[in-house]
Structure formats: C-alpha cells, structure tokens
Design a protein around this nucleic acid. Sequence first.
DNA 1: TTAGAGTTTCCTGCTT
DNA 2: CAAGCAGGAAACTCTA
Length: 299
Amino acid sequence: MILEGSGVMNLNSSNHLLHQQPAWTDSYPTCNVSSGFFGGQWHETHPQYWTKYQVWEWLQHLLDTNQLDANCIPFQEFDINGEHLCSMTLQEFSRAAGAAGQILYNNLQHLKWNGQCSSDPFQSTHNVIVKTEQADPSIMTTWKEDNYLYDANYGSTVEMMDSKTFCRAQISMTTTGHLPIDSPDLKKEQEHPAKSHPKKHNPRGTHLWEFIRDILLNPDKNPGLIKWEDRSEGIFRFLKSEAVAQLWGKKKNNSSMTYEKLSRAMRYYYKREILERVDGRRLVYKFGKNARGWRENEN
DNA sequence: TTAGAGTTTCCTGCTT
DNA sequence: CAAGCAGGAAACTCTA
C-alpha cells in the first residue's frame, strides 16, 4: 500500500480549510465508517471509527511512508478496531511494535489531533455518520453514488464535502505536519519530505495490485472473490472476476469498470514484474518480485 | 506548465 | 460461441 498523494502538496486551500475548522468533527464531515466493502479508506475516517481493516491500512501506510521493514510492525498485534487503537498508550504501542511503536503512537495522536480538538462524545456522535457494514459487495452503496449519507442519529441526509479535497487535506497534514508533534521521525519527514517519499506516486489511492493483495490478505472481508492457489508462491485466482472489477470500480468511483479493463491493468504489471504470468490458467496470476507485502514472512 | 506514473478505454487477434 | 488472454495505442487523472 502506498501513500495516496505523497510528499509536499498544494495545501493552500486545504490548509485554509483546516485552519478554519479546528474541531475534528468538522474535519471528518464525511466520516463513513463502513462506506464500502472494507469500510472505506482509513484517511477518510477518524481513527476512533476505523475498522480492523482500516487499522491495517494505516499500519501499511506507515510502513511505506517511513520506509520501515514489514517486520517492524507485527500486524497480528493490531487485530483491533479504531476505538481500541485510540485507547492504547505509548507503552502499549511500544510493547506491541517495539521501536516502531513510537512512530505509530505519534502518528495516531497526530491524526486524532489533526481534527480532534474536543473529545466530547456528543460531538463525535453528532457529526460522524455511520452506515451499517455490508458484507456483500453486490449490495453495497457508497457515498459517492448517492452523494449523501444518512445520519442515523438524526434521521436526515447530510450533504457531502468533496472527498478528494478532504483526503488531500488529511494526507497533507499528515505528511507535512503543521502540528506540534515532537516525533523525530515526523520532524525528519518534514525536513526531507522528498527523501521520505521517494518516487511515490499514487494519485488515486491504493494501486490495483495492492487492492488485490489486500483482498487476499483479509479473508474475513473476502467473500470468495479471490483465493490463493499457492500461498507461498504468491499464486492466486479470481473466483468472481466481475465482482472484483466492480469493487475496484467502486474504489475508483468508476461504475463502468469491468474485468476486461481490470485485467488489462493487471497485464501491465508483468512488465514491471509486479505480477508474473501463469501460463495456461485463466484468471490466475502470480505476484512478482516487485510486489511487496503479500508474503506471510515478508523480508 | 509540463512530464511521468498509473491506470482506463478501446481495439484486434488469439486461445481455451 | 463465450470468456479470457495478450498487447498496442491513445486518453485520462493526478502529482512532482
């Protein structure tokens, strides 16, 4: 998983926006706990409301942005939701993730603080919009489709802020850090953003191959869409190719995505050695040497 | 403003 | 025959 919108960004409008809106509840106006198959993207939601999957997405993001070895963060120690995560102390982070615990803790505090000036539980439930999690991608709907969400607490629809603007604001604040964080890692990142994010380019969120990988790595959220054929070799097979394509389309806000188009993008990965061909087998692919994070004992 | 990355879309031909 | 594969070409979106 790669940072969406890396490095220094054009923050003028988003910074302005955030400075105008110091309360986290205002900075997460579109919080949609389970907007999609995986519960939406972690940076679209306040940490308090992350699902387990979003916690993992956040961990993966930190691995990427801090150039950490995958072994630095034992994911099994973070089989928890956002609420649990937010309740963890620095000591608990350190115990769970060792040296990386400090980074995790600082980043989480940063994210919480980023929008959260108040811990008022009323405020948090007032503005955060919750949707019931839907396991079946065929029936799921996203906020983009309807352009509004239903606020269960108040029985009303809420107009949405532009998600891209919101994400940019979130990520830029995370990566450039205008907040008083003492973490040396974050300071370093502020001083050398380009060095911290070498050749990261992920304009529209997670890459396709990472999206596929994450489905494979999260069987609880993978209702028979893709399965491992040979886990150790990184060989996998699409079981519901069109459903996966639809899911990818949802993620990219592209309702016309098909497996034919998705597979074309997959084939481009051959040249980059992110995927390898598996001859003679339909719907079967294999992770290549440039694909990271799919092995059970990565690195 | 521009170049490049990473798709997305469309296409033709081939294979299963 | 349908579905999937292969890969060229152009268009598109977004970031540095």
